[in-house]
């Protein structure tokens, strides 16, 4: 990549667009999550502020912005305050490399997949920092759970995505998307169903969403790692959750559902539509299933997903070698 003025401007514009995207996403998703929860639970959901409660999230954001940040006694000030920022910050970079459309990518690199996997790990660091710095036992347990969980889930996730990389012969997301062009059955979900299965389960683990929301574990750990956070500290963790949800949904769209390749006219709208549908699916799951127990979660991963991922990788490799 050559560093020219044009490229730098493009990069800055992309980052700006991503910030707008992430904030918009949080605003819309919080509303959608509440509405979907309301629909599942047969109640209207937010209804008062704005038409169909559309401005509820805006009102909540203002409230959270105005709220005082309370520091728990003898907490680690620096770590406590930097953890929410740390949770949010690496996300901006990840969204640079996602190919939203044929011409819509912030930064074209040929190691996009690797970059994404490397940066998603940083959110765990933020959770550990926040949980540790809070000087709260619930937060500490939540943080400890988060470590075991992300270690457990990242390996099958990597194995599943590695099978895709094998098949396309590249870590470049654009190449992976292009390999799925043509008709719907060229999508990776049909060519790599097992990898998709593993990917979906690990998605919930990665994003700490129900039924794998153990670091939060509301009924056991009250709020888990963000028990002590108030105001914007809490809001940033919240935004990080929705952002990582959007990230895995974009990944699902790009890696398994053909990205910008649609049944008809190709374009970035397909990526966004698929992303939206996958996020709705995640919301639907959250309001349907109870939470798994922690040892069960680790068992699912180490005893089932890891061997399955290895098997999938092995079969992919053999098939690629033979044909």
């Amino acid at each position: 990549m050559d560093i020219s003025l044009l490229n730098v401007i493009k990069l800055l514009l992309a980052l700006l667009a991503i910030i707008v995207l992430l904030v918009l996403n949080s605003v819309v998703m919080v509303w959608l999550e509440r509405k979907a929860a309301g629909f599942v639970q047969r109640r209207p959901g937010p209804y008062v502020v704005g038409p169909h409660g559309l401005l509820q999230t805006v009102a909540d954001s203002v409230k959270l912005l105005a709220k005082q940040i309370v520091l728990p006694g003898s907490s680690d000030r620096l770590l406590f305050l930097s953890a929410p920022v740390l949770a949010m910050f690496p996300m901006f970079l990840i969204f640079l490399v996602i190919p939203y459309g044929p011409w819509l990518t912030g930064l074209e690199v040929n190691l996009g997949l690797l970059l994404i996997l490397a940066f998603t790990g940083l959110e765990t660091l933020a959770v550990i920092a926040g949980g540790w710095a809070s000087n709260n036992k619930y937060s500490l347990i939540g943080a400890a759970r988060c470590v075991s969980q992300s270690v457990a889930y990242e390996i099958p996730l990597i194995l599943a995505l590695l099978a895709l990389a094998f098949m396309c012969g590249s870590l470049d997301l654009t190449v992976i998307t292009e390999a799925q062009s043509g008709w719907v059955w060229r999508w990776n979900i049909f060519r790599q169903p097992l990898a998709f299965f593993i990917f979906v389960i690990t998605c919930f683990g990665e994003t700490n969403r129900a039924p794998f929301d153990l670091p939060e574990g509301e009924s056991e750990l009250t709020g888990g790692y963000h028990t002590e956070y108030s105001g914007m500290g809490f809001a940033l963790f919240f935004m990080a959750e929705y952002t990582s949800m959007m990230l895995v949904s974009f990944l699902a769209a790009v890696l398994f559902f053909g990205g910008s390749n649609g049944p008809f006219i190709n374009g970035f709208w397909w990526t966004f539509l698929k992303m939206g549908l996958f996020m709705t699916f995640m919301i639907w799951v959250r309001w349907t299933f109870p939470r798994v127990r922690f040892d069960q979660l680790l068992n699912i991963n180490w005893k089932w997903l890891l061997p399955l991922g290895l098997l999938n990788l092995w079969v992919t490799a053999v098939v690629l070698k033979l044909f």
Binding site: Q68, I69, V70, L71, P72, G73
Partner: peptide, 16 residues
């Protein structure tokens, strides 16, 4: 209270 200084942090208790 919308205009409370967001950079003012309070501590619940520092008394061991």
């Amino acid at each position: 209270n919308l205009f409370v200084n967001p950079f003012h942090f309070s501590t619940i208790s520092e008394n061991p």
